[in-house]
Amino acid sequence: MYELHTDRLTLRGWRDSDLEPWAAMNADPEVRKHLGDLLTREQTDASVARFQAEFEQRGYGWWAVEVRATGEFIGFAGLDRVDDGMPFSGVEIGWRLARTAWGKGYATEAALAVLAYGFDTLELSEILAVTTSTNMRSQAVMRRIGMTRDPADDFEDPEAPEGPLRPNVLFRRACGARV
Protein backbone atom coordinates (compact mmCIF):
# COMPACT_ATOMS: atom_id res chain seq x y z
CA MET A 1 0.00 0.00 0.00
CA TYR A 2 1.29 3.41 -0.97
CA GLU A 3 1.81 5.80 1.98
CA LEU A 4 1.20 9.53 1.88
CA HIS A 5 3.14 11.95 4.05
CA THR A 6 2.40 15.55 4.96
CA ASP A 7 4.22 17.86 7.35
CA ARG A 8 2.33 16.45 10.32
CA LEU A 9 0.59 13.27 9.16
CA THR A 10 1.18 9.84 7.69
CA LEU A 11 -1.60 8.17 5.73
CA ARG A 12 -0.80 4.46 5.76
CA GLY A 13 -2.15 0.94 5.75
CA TRP A 14 -4.17 -0.28 8.69
CA ARG A 15 -2.56 -2.07 11.65
CA ASP A 16 -4.03 -4.29 14.34
CA SER A 17 -3.22 -1.54 16.83
CA ASP A 18 -5.67 0.75 14.97
CA LEU A 19 -8.67 -1.47 15.69
CA GLU A 20 -9.32 -0.36 19.26
CA PRO A 21 -9.17 3.42 18.64
CA TRP A 22 -11.14 2.97 15.40
CA ALA A 23 -13.85 1.09 17.32
CA ALA A 24 -13.90 3.84 19.96
CA MET A 25 -14.37 6.48 17.25
CA ASN A 26 -17.26 4.57 15.72
CA ALA A 27 -18.90 4.22 19.13
CA ASP A 28 -18.67 7.99 19.76
CA PRO A 29 -22.03 9.71 19.16
CA GLU A 30 -20.32 13.01 18.24
CA VAL A 31 -18.10 11.37 15.63
CA ARG A 32 -21.10 9.48 14.20
CA LYS A 33 -23.52 12.43 14.39
CA HIS A 34 -23.65 12.93 10.60
CA LEU A 35 -23.04 9.29 9.69
CA GLY A 36 -25.81 7.29 11.30
CA ASP A 37 -25.91 4.56 13.90
CA LEU A 38 -23.02 3.77 16.21
CA LEU A 39 -21.00 0.76 15.08
CA THR A 40 -20.13 -2.32 17.10
CA ARG A 41 -16.60 -3.61 17.45
CA GLU A 42 -17.42 -6.38 15.00
CA GLN A 43 -18.69 -3.87 12.44
CA THR A 44 -15.59 -1.69 12.77
CA ASP A 45 -13.25 -4.68 12.50
CA ALA A 46 -15.12 -5.77 9.36
CA SER A 47 -14.81 -2.26 7.92
CA VAL A 48 -11.02 -2.37 8.24
CA ALA A 49 -10.87 -5.75 6.50
CA ARG A 50 -13.03 -4.30 3.70
CA PHE A 51 -10.84 -1.15 3.46
CA GLN A 52 -7.71 -3.28 3.09
CA ALA A 53 -9.23 -5.56 0.45
CA GLU A 54 -10.59 -2.63 -1.59
CA PHE A 55 -7.25 -0.82 -1.45
CA GLU A 56 -5.39 -3.88 -2.68
CA GLN A 57 -7.93 -4.43 -5.44
CA ARG A 58 -8.07 -0.88 -6.87
CA GLY A 59 -4.98 0.96 -5.63
CA TYR A 60 -6.92 3.48 -3.57
CA GLY A 61 -9.27 3.52 -0.63
CA TRP A 62 -9.21 4.51 3.03
CA TRP A 63 -5.85 5.11 4.67
CA ALA A 64 -5.37 5.07 8.41
CA VAL A 65 -4.16 8.51 9.52
CA GLU A 66 -1.55 8.99 12.23
CA VAL A 67 0.26 11.99 13.66
CA ARG A 68 3.89 11.76 12.53
CA ALA A 69 5.37 13.22 15.70
CA THR A 70 3.68 10.73 18.03
CA GLY A 71 2.49 7.81 15.89
CA GLU A 72 -1.01 8.31 17.32
CA PHE A 73 -3.83 6.90 15.17
CA ILE A 74 -6.41 9.68 14.69
CA GLY A 75 -8.78 8.36 12.02
CA PHE A 76 -8.99 7.79 8.31
CA ALA A 77 -8.96 9.64 4.99
CA GLY A 78 -9.14 8.49 1.43
CA LEU A 79 -11.06 7.87 -1.74
CA ASP A 80 -13.95 5.57 -2.55
CA ARG A 81 -16.28 4.87 -5.44
CA VAL A 82 -19.65 6.51 -5.09
CA ASP A 83 -22.22 3.94 -3.98
CA ASP A 84 -24.63 2.54 -6.56
CA GLY A 85 -28.06 4.10 -6.34
CA MET A 86 -26.79 7.62 -5.80
CA PRO A 87 -27.92 10.34 -8.25
CA PHE A 88 -24.31 10.81 -9.46
CA SER A 89 -21.22 8.67 -9.99
CA GLY A 90 -17.49 9.01 -9.63
CA VAL A 91 -14.90 8.89 -6.88
CA GLU A 92 -15.42 10.67 -3.59
CA ILE A 93 -13.02 11.87 -0.95
CA GLY A 94 -13.73 11.49 2.74
CA TRP A 95 -12.26 11.64 6.23
CA ARG A 96 -13.22 10.79 9.78
CA LEU A 97 -11.18 11.86 12.76
CA ALA A 98 -11.34 11.25 16.49
CA ARG A 99 -12.73 14.20 18.43
CA THR A 100 -9.30 14.77 20.03
CA ALA A 101 -8.00 15.56 16.51
CA TRP A 102 -10.71 18.08 15.60
CA GLY A 103 -9.87 21.74 15.15
CA LYS A 104 -6.17 21.19 14.37
CA GLY A 105 -6.29 21.31 10.58
CA TYR A 106 -5.63 17.58 10.24
CA ALA A 107 -8.69 16.89 8.06
CA THR A 108 -7.67 19.61 5.61
CA GLU A 109 -4.04 18.43 5.57
CA ALA A 110 -5.00 14.79 4.98
CA ALA A 111 -7.59 15.72 2.36
CA LEU A 112 -5.10 17.79 0.37
CA ALA A 113 -2.72 14.81 0.29
CA VAL A 114 -5.54 12.53 -0.85
CA LEU A 115 -6.59 14.99 -3.57
CA ALA A 116 -3.02 15.15 -4.86
CA TYR A 117 -2.87 11.34 -4.97
CA GLY A 118 -6.21 11.17 -6.78
CA PHE A 119 -5.26 13.73 -9.40
CA ASP A 120 -1.52 13.06 -9.81
CA THR A 121 -1.28 9.28 -9.33
CA LEU A 122 -4.73 8.02 -10.29
CA GLU A 123 -5.20 10.74 -12.93
CA LEU A 124 -8.81 11.36 -11.93
CA SER A 125 -10.46 14.25 -13.73
CA GLU A 126 -12.80 15.08 -10.84
CA ILE A 127 -13.20 14.19 -7.17
CA LEU A 128 -16.47 14.51 -5.29
CA ALA A 129 -17.32 14.97 -1.61
CA VAL A 130 -20.65 14.33 0.08
CA THR A 131 -21.98 15.13 3.53
CA THR A 132 -25.23 15.90 5.28
CA SER A 133 -26.55 19.41 4.80
CA THR A 134 -26.04 20.05 8.53
CA ASN A 135 -22.37 18.97 8.69
CA MET A 136 -20.82 22.41 8.56
CA ARG A 137 -17.40 21.23 9.77
CA SER A 138 -16.94 18.89 6.80
CA GLN A 139 -18.35 21.46 4.40
CA ALA A 140 -15.75 23.95 5.69
CA VAL A 141 -12.98 21.42 4.96
CA MET A 142 -14.40 20.87 1.48
CA ARG A 143 -14.21 24.60 0.79
CA ARG A 144 -10.67 24.87 2.22
CA ILE A 145 -9.45 22.16 -0.17
CA GLY A 146 -10.85 23.99 -3.17
CA MET A 147 -14.11 22.12 -3.67
CA THR A 148 -17.23 23.93 -4.79
CA ARG A 149 -20.92 23.28 -4.31
CA ASP A 150 -23.78 23.87 -6.71
CA PRO A 151 -27.06 23.75 -4.72
CA ALA A 152 -28.66 22.17 -7.80
CA ASP A 153 -26.57 19.05 -7.01
CA ASP A 154 -27.98 18.70 -3.46
CA PHE A 155 -29.92 15.47 -3.00
CA GLU A 156 -31.77 13.19 -0.62
CA ASP A 157 -29.63 10.18 0.34
CA PRO A 158 -31.76 7.18 -0.67
CA GLU A 159 -30.03 4.98 1.93
CA ALA A 160 -30.55 7.33 4.88
CA PRO A 161 -33.63 7.15 7.09
CA GLU A 162 -36.07 10.06 7.12
CA GLY A 163 -34.63 12.87 9.21
CA PRO A 164 -31.47 14.98 9.41
CA LEU A 165 -29.20 12.44 7.67
CA ARG A 166 -31.27 12.39 4.47
CA PRO A 167 -30.60 15.88 2.97
CA ASN A 168 -27.08 15.88 1.52
CA VAL A 169 -24.82 18.28 -0.30
CA LEU A 170 -22.39 17.46 -3.09
CA PHE A 171 -19.09 19.26 -3.58
CA ARG A 172 -16.80 18.87 -6.61
CA ARG A 173 -13.25 19.63 -7.54
CA ALA A 174 -11.86 19.23 -11.02
CA CYS A 175 -8.25 18.32 -11.70
CA GLY A 176 -6.22 21.51 -11.95
CA ALA A 177 -8.65 23.63 -9.93
CA ARG A 178 -6.86 26.06 -7.65
CA VAL A 179 -7.22 26.07 -3.88
Results as ranks from 00 to 15, higher is better:
Arg143Asp: 01
Val91Trp: 03
Thr132Ala: 12
Ala107Pro: 04
Arg137Gly: 15
Glu42Lys: 04
Lys33Val: 08
Leu122Arg: 08
Ala107His: 08
Thr70Pro: 02
Met142Lys: 02
Glu72Ala: 15
Asp83Leu: 08
Gly118Pro: 13
Val48Ala: 02
Gly59Cys: 11
Met147Pro: 15
Ala111Trp: 04
Gly90Arg: 01
Gln139Met: 14
Ser138Val: 01
Thr148Glu: 08
Ala64Trp: 00
Thr100Cys: 09
Gly118Tyr: 02
Arg41Gly: 06
Arg99Tyr: 06
Arg144Glu: 14
Thr132Asp: 11
Gly59Asn: 03
Val141Ile: 00
Glu66Leu: 07
Tyr117Trp: 01
Leu115Tyr: 11
Asp84Lys: 15
Pro87Asp: 00
Gln139Gly: 00
Gly61Lys: 06
Asp37Cys: 09
Phe51His: 10
Ala101Cys: 06
Leu124Ala: 02
Val141Leu: 10
Glu123Ala: 14
Arg68Ser: 10
Glu42Ile: 03
Ser125Arg: 10
Leu112Asp: 08
Gly61Cys: 10
Ala46Trp: 06
Thr121Ser: 05
Phe51Glu: 07
Ala111Phe: 02
Gly85Asp: 11
Ala69Asn: 13
Glu123Trp: 14
Thr148Met: 14
Phe73Ile: 00
Ser138Gln: 09
Ala107Trp: 08
Gln52Met: 09
Val65Cys: 03
Ala111Glu: 14
Arg99Val: 14
Met142Pro: 13
Pro87Gly: 04
Gly103Trp: 12
Thr40Cys: 06
Lys104Ser: 12
Arg41His: 12
Asp83Cys: 05
Ser138Arg: 02
Trp95Tyr: 13
Ala101Gln: 10
Thr121Asn: 07
His34Thr: 07
Phe88Ala: 01
Thr132Trp: 08
Leu39Ile: 04
Gln43Asp: 01
Gly59Glu: 07
Thr40Gly: 13
Gln52Trp: 07
